[in-house]
Simulated assay, not measured.
Amino acid sequence: MRGLLFALICLFTGAAHAAPGNAYLTLIIDDLGQSPARDARVLALPGPVTLAIMPDTPHATEFARQGHRAGKTVMLHMPMDPATGPYAWHPGTPIPELEQRLLAALAKVPFVSGINNHMGSRMTAQPEAMAWLMGELQRRHLFFVDSRTSAATVAAAKAQAQGLAHLSRDVFLDDLRTPEAIARQLQVAIALARKQGSAVMIGHPYPQTLDVLERELPRLKAQGIELIEIHQMIAERSNRAMPAHGKNGVYR
Rank of each mutant, 00 (worst) to 15 (best):
A191Y: 07
V212G: 00
Q196Y: 08
L43F: 10
V250I: 15
W89H: 08
L173R: 00
R38P: 05
F144S: 13
H17C: 15
G67N: 05
H245M: 08
A40Y: 12
D211G: 03
A189L: 07
Q66T: 15
W89G: 02
L103S: 09
E216V: 02
T61E: 09
L27H: 05
Y206A: 05
R169T: 12
H59V: 06
T61M: 09
G246F: 02
L103Q: 11
M78R: 00
L32T: 03
E97V: 14
F63M: 10
D146V: 11
A83R: 03
L210M: 06
P82R: 00
G163K: 05
P91N: 07
A88T: 03
A193D: 05
M201S: 03
I230H: 12
R148F: 12
P58L: 00
L103C: 09
M134E: 04
L98V: 07
A157R: 15
A15N: 11
E180W: 13
R194M: 03
R237C: 07
A16W: 09
D170L: 10
P48D: 05
G114D: 04
A189R: 00
D81S: 13
H166N: 09
G3Y: 08
T13R: 09
L98I: 12
N117P: 06
I225F: 03
G33P: 14
L227N: 03
L5S: 14
D174K: 08
